[in-house]
């Protein structure tokens, strides 16, 4: 039971980083990407390759995963600079589909559909951190660092620049904001953090394959951010806890047959989303009232 809860807590922490990273794009910069699982995957594969072929150091692997995801985020930044709104959603959808094909076919890098197995236990600067408690501590540290970094950036001029673009791109330009540069940096930061989350995910599961980086995952991440409260610091965490823990909670309810949990989960998700959009459209953690 403890092992199960520790695993759940570690996954919630990793997905917390992932949702917080997507919040930089959706919540602060207004870039509605449905391709975030791609950068989660790139980070996971890169981190896993470092662990398998070099050294299973979680810091080094996370740096590699974050850097590669940040670099490849230019694939997302380029359409973000040219198109907006629903056109960008369509462009990111294309990128997501393309990436899943690459993940499935690039056997030498990703292991194809079979994935990468036997990812060695994590260490941190020579210290073994593979035990569930220690790895949870590493993940909590990474989450804290991510949230503090995001909070500092978003409270400053950079964050105001992103939010200005989100609220009115043309007005932001008219006030001297370099919109292409701001968007590119926002995408790079968000995707780098997603890459770090991917690396931690690879260490936690010791096995990764394309199934974790599909469009469904991207949509789930988007739901986490929107349900929790896009553009708020803690909203994505609230959304993550709700959506990740719901299946676990349902499995403990005695009168729901194990075979029906998936169906009940979908019903609860659907109902929760509908009620939320009616009563708290800005998300659970967002301030609800205005001055008038």
């Amino acid at each position: 039971m403890t092992a199960y809860l520790l695993n759940l807590a570690t996954l919630a922490t990793i997905f917390g980083i992932l949702a917080a990273s997507l919040n930089v794009l959706i919540g602060y910069a207004g870039i509605f990407s449905v391709a975030h699982a791609v950068f989660f995957g790139v980070g996971a594969y890169a981190g896993a390759q470092v662990a398998l072929n070099l050294v299973p150091d979680v810091l080094l692997a996370s740096l590699a995963g974050g850097l590669l995801s940040g670099l490849l985020s230019l694939c997302l930044a380029l359409p973000a600079l040219r198109v907006r709104g629903e056109y960008f959603v369509a462009a990111s959808l294309g990128l997501q589909m393309l990436a899943v094909t690459v993940f499935s076919e690039a056997h030498s890098l990703t292991g194809g559909h079979g994935g990468l197995v036997g990812i060695p236990p994590a260490s941190l600067l020579g210290i073994d951190v593979s035990s569930p408690w220690r790895f949870l501590a590493v993940c909590v540290g990474a989450l804290t660092l991510s949230l503090v970094s995001i909070a500092i950036l978003m409270r400053g001029g950079f964050g105001r620049g992103l939010m200005a673009i989100r609220d009115s791109e043309s007005a932001a330009e008219a006030l001297g904001k370099n919109v292409p540069a701001l968007k590119t940096i926002a995408v790079a930061i968000g995707c780098s953090l997603a890459g770090v989350a991917g690396t931690l995910f690879a260490f936690q599961l010791a096995f990764i394959n394309v199934e974790s980086f599909t469009l469904e995952q991207s949509v789930l991440l988007m739901a986490m951010v929107i349900i929790g409260g896009a553009g708020t610091l803690l909203g994505p965490l609230v959304g993550t806890l709700l959506l990740l823990l719901l299946p676990a909670v349902l499995s403990f309810i005695p009168f729901i047959p194990a075979t029906e949990i998936g169906t009940v989960q979908q019903l609860v998700y659907g109902l929760a989303m509908t009620l939320l959009m009616i009563f708290r459209p800005a998300g659970l953690a967002a301030p609800s009232t205005g001055r008038r």
Binding site: G157, F158, R160, G161, M163, A164, R166, S168, A171, I185
Partner: peptide, 25 residues
């Protein structure tokens, strides 16, 4: 008008003085 609706009145104005795209002004 195209105000930055979800930002505060102060941040709307302050933002006009922060043109650089770097992480820190």
């Amino acid at each position: 008008l195209r105000l930055f609706g979800r930002m505060s009145v102060r941040d709307n104005v302050l933002s006009a003085l922060e043109p650089t795209a770097w992480l820190w002004q």
